[in-house]
Design a protein around this nucleic acid. Sequence first.
DNA 1: TAGATTGTTAATCGATTAACAATC
DNA 2: TAGATTGTTAATCGATTAACAATC
Lengths: 213, 213
Amino acid sequence: MNATKEVVVRLTKYKNVLEKLRSLGFVKVFSDNLADALGVSPALVRKDFSFFGLSGKKRAGYRVEDLIAQLNHILGVDEIQRVIVVGCGKIGTALMRYRGFAREKIRVVSGFDVDPAKIDANAPVPIRDLNEIPYIVKSESIRVAILTVPETVATQVAETLIAAGIKGILNFAPILLKGGNGVVVQNINIALELENLFCLLRFADKDMGGESA
Amino acid sequence: MNATKEVVVRLTKYKNVLEKLRSLGFVKVFSDNLADALGVSPALVRKDFSFFGLSGKKRAGYRVEDLIAQLNHILGVDEIQRVIVVGCGKIGTALMRYRGFAREKIRVVSGFDVDPAKIDANAPVPIRDLNEIPYIVKSESIRVAILTVPETVATQVAETLIAAGIKGILNFAPILLKGGNGVVVQNINIALELENLFCLLRFADKDMGGESA
DNA sequence: TAGATTGTTAATCGATTAACAATC
DNA sequence: TAGATTGTTAATCGATTAACAATC
């Protein structure tokens, strides 16, 4: 087994569940409990843990506090994660001020846009010209960018980002950017997600003589 | 094989590629071509197509125009898809005016919020009180909602939506909503996606003595 | 001790691919 | 005809689960 996207996603889910357990006063937890919470088998939980060197005690399970600490370390959530937002349209601007980021120790260092009217280097989160990307990425050691530019320029701007040294892109442009060569791309296509939702509903209608879950 | 989420996602990708081919003047296409474009095997393309009753001609491949028309029908993109946005904070507001939706024939019928200051029934996309959800959902026959309320109330509002007759939820609240019982939930957790991106990068750093893709 | 839970090996399952007969 | 491509069946692959020895 290697660190696929799915395993990483599960690790994060374990962590969230564990934090809730901790707030309820739980001290230890069994693979069974976590398996139920995630809807997977206990064997998979143990396998994931053993792969990352998280060990428990036979009969006594895993210590909640230890697991959280170690998961935080593995997931790298100990340090503050710094990102830039490229494209300050509606969604870009919303993300620059998104509260969900603060909670997860994600900090937006700067926004970037082509529109001179939007540029404001003194704002709480400054907005700079696209030209300044290479300089800021280098001087601030930024590794990850959120890409919220229009579709038409997305590919080109992505290339600029990669050339500037960006290693991870969270892409909101409705285009399938490809990673590779040391660059990881995560595509979020909101319209597509909605379409798929409609489509799944349509199939559910057809198939169903009454399913449940 | 049944209509899993993955198959639906592939269908949408086929459609996108086909539209590009059409704009280049292509008339027919082989399973080989589409397979290359999506990074899967030709066999899978043919299997997907045959599952949905899309047939080609041996030796002559598939007709681009026909495939697009049939995919549009299967995916239900023929008609305009109508949704509501529940929670008009930063992200909700951005989505209410998101241009990517218009292109995909998705129309936001109404927003909803608890804050009286935000309510404006005469706006281009009206914003109404949460109380009006059941009425609007019924009178406008809405089946899908975008959920952009704060985490603390997300579960509760989701229940309201389901009680009102909503069958599909695109959830942006950082909580794992569960579907089932005829309701389909698609979770988009932006902070989580970013975290996973950082995490994947970290592993890439460790593993790598120089991979590529 | 008897009972319960971990860590790991072997079995299973589902999705994808290879291969090939049918046929244009 | 010979060659190429579909549609489908059998094989493969990877991820998940079942099962169990080790042991607390």
